[in-house]
Each structure stands twice: as structure tokens, then as C-alpha cells.
């Protein structure tokens, strides 16, 4: 039984298949309208993340399936102290696939060990958030028509930004990738990431000023500086508006550079940029739904023909 705990759980060619399916979903959404009829998705959200939960539930609903679950730990048996393992054993009797989000790192791994149904990690603390990374990859692939040979700029909080580390690891598997890390000194990319790049011989450079490097980028990935990462308010206030992407800065960028952002944004992208055709962060949300649909199909082993009929289905739940 397949699960997704990290983006690296799938090989580059397996990811290609998922992205091909996602592209087909985008082109022919009707074909998939009944692909998951009768299937149930459980969303087990031990901490709220409305965007990720709604995206995952939408993916299931778009394919004719249904959803159940909880959206924070207080409203569930978890508040009575039930272990993750017991919760997932129980949920395995109800649902066909489960999406889990938890504040502790490695929670999805615990769920996987006890589960009889596929697990989608929707974020385990500061550790992994593979469906966000797959969303980012699909967005880049759809906009640039490739995932190799490009210069990717990552800007903002590169120290604590989990989505950033995960995206770098995932993009490092493709040929001809160069990274430019743009951050204030206090939020520089951690050594373990640059160690990994050095080991693989992948070129990167670090810069403080976005204006100096934006003209060389094919993708600009903006991130938010998060208050909860800081010990003191003073540092947060000083760094939160360190970068604000404006129309003026965008003038220096290539015509075919795209701006991505995992959202929600605060001030780091000025709203005046939203109408720029290169602003891709809301399209990114839409790709998030497509890639989650493709992922659910893959984990359930479901294939449909051109008439939208299910022609293949995985073996289903593991026996009790």
C-alpha cells in the first residue's frame, strides 16, 4: 500500500505520471467526475489549516467521493487523549483514504504504521508537507512546460520555511537546476540544505537584495515571515517587511518569470502585482486541487477511460 509522507516517497518518473494525470484532469475535468464514486476521504486535522483541508476535500468531492473528519484536535476523541495509532485504526474501518495534519513531527509516520488505508501527510509540524511541494512542482511544470534547466529564486524566510526546504530537495532531483537564495542574514538557508546541494554539485548563491538578482530568475518563490517562529516580537517586526515585491521590482524580471507563493501572503507581495500575468500564486491554488486529485487516484490505484468509467482499482484496504 502506498502512502505519501514526503515528496521523495515517489521517484521522479512516478511524479511525472502524477503530473501527467493532473494535467489530464485540468484538460478534461468531466472525465474524472465519478472516478471516486463511493470512496470516502477522512481528513484528520489535529491543528487547523483551512486551505489545505479544503483543497484536499475539494479534490475528493470533484471526483464524486465524499469526506468526513475533524478540523482541530478539540472537536475529536483526540481531546480525550486517544493515540494517533488508535485513531487511524478506527478510521481505517470507516474511510478508504486519510489525510492527516498534526503539529508534531513524524505524526504521519505513526499513522502509516497503524493504517489499513493510504495516508496523505498534510503537514507534520515543521517537518514535511508533501502536497504543498507537489503543488509547487506541478505549478512550475505547467507554467514553464519543464522541471529542468532553470534558475529558481527563493525569497524571504529561508531558515524556518519548511515549504522552501522541501521544494529545494524535490527540485534537486532534476537536471540543470540553479538556486538563488534571497534572505536577510538572520533568515539564511540552513547548512544542512547547502551541504546537500554541495554534495550533489548543484550550483547556488546567496543574496540579500532581491532587485540585484530578480532579472536572472525563471521562478521566484516568495515566502511569508511567520510570527510564531520568533522568540521576540522586535525581531519579527524588523524582518516581516524586509521584502515587498512591487510592480517596480517586477519590471526587472524576465517576461516569462513566474511568481509563486504558498499563501497566505501578508505584505511580501504588494496587491498591485496581482494583475501581472506573471503572478501565479492563485493559479497555484488551483493546481493544488489538481495534484491532490491525481494523488488520491494514484494512492487508490484508480484509472478511468476516456468515457470516465473506472477501469482499474487498487486492492483496497489491508485486512483487519
Amino acid at each position: 500500500m502506498r502512502h505519501i509522507l514526503t515528496p521523495l516517497d515517489f521517484s521522479v518518473s512516478e511524479l511525472d505520471q502524477i503530473f501527467d494525470t493532473a494535467a489530464d484532469i485540468e484538460a478534461n475535468p468531466k472525465k474524472y467526475a465519478n472516478a471516486c464514486r463511493g470512496k470516502k476521504l477522512a481528513t484528520l486535522f489535529y491543528e487547523p489549516s483551512t486551505r489545505t483541508r479544503l483543497s484536499t476535500e475539494t479534490a475528493m468531492l470533484n471526483m464524486g467521493g465524499s469526506t468526513m473528519g475533524f478540523s482541530d484536535a478539540n472537536s475529536s476523541s483526540v481531546s480525550k487523549g486517544e493515540s494517533i495509532a488508535d485513531t487511524i485504526r478506527t478510521v481505517s474501518c470507516f474511510a478508504d483514504i486519510a489525510a492527516i495534519r498534526h503539529p508534531k513531527e513524524g505524526a504521519a509516520m505513526v499513522a502509516k504504521q497503524a493504517s489499513r488505508i493510504p495516508i496523505i501527510n498534510c503537514g507534520d509540524g515543521g517537518h514535511q508537507h508533501p502536497t504543498q511541494t507537489l503543488t509547487d512542482l506541478l505549478t512550475i511544470r505547467s507554467l514553464k512546460k519543464r522541471l529542468n534547466n532553470m534558475t529558481i529564486g527563493l525569497c524571504g524566510d529561508l531558515k524556518f520555511g519548511r515549504t522552501v526546504h522541501s521544494l529545494i530537495a524535490a527540485m534537486s532531483r532534476y537536471q540543470g537546476i540553479r538556486f538563488i537564495f534571497i534572505s536577510p542574514n538572520e533568515l539564511r538557508i540552513p547548512d544542512y540544505v547547502t551541504d546537500m546541494l554541495d554534495e550533489k554539485g548543484i550550483p547556488y548563491q546567496e543574496n540579500v537584495r532581491l532587485d540585484d538578482v530578480i532579472g536572472r530568475l525563471d521562478i521566484l518563490y516568495m515566502t511569508r515571515v511567520q510570527r510564531e517562529r520568533f522568540f521576540n516580537e522586535e525581531d519579527y517586526v524588523r524582518l516581516k517587511d524586509f521584502y515587498v515585491l512591487t510592480k517596480k521590482t517586477m519590471r526587472r524580471a524576465k517576461n516569462d518569470m513566474f511568481v509563486l507563493h504558498p499563501l497566505p501572503r501578508v505584505n511580501e507581495i504588494s496587491v498591485e502585482v496581482d494583475n501581472d500575468p506573471r503572478a501565479a500564486y492563485f493559479r497555484q491554488v488551483q493546481y493544488g486541487v489538481y495534484v491532490r486529485m491525481a494523488l488520491i487516484l494514484t494512492l487508490l490505484g484508480i484509472k478511468v477511460n476516456d468515457d470516465g468509467e473506472v477501469i482499474e482499482e487498487g486492492p483496497g484496504k489491508l485486512p483487519l
Binding site: 493515540s83 498534526h102 508534531k104 513531527e105 505524526a107 509516520m109 509540524g125 515543521g126
Partner: peptide, 8 residues
């Protein structure tokens, strides 16, 4: 922050 610190 590891799940093994709380899960039985």
C-alpha cells in the same frame, strides 16, 4: 517536537 515524545 517529535511525535515519539507524546505517542504511546
Amino acid at each position: 517536537r517529535c511525535i515519539t515524545s507524546i505517542e504511546q
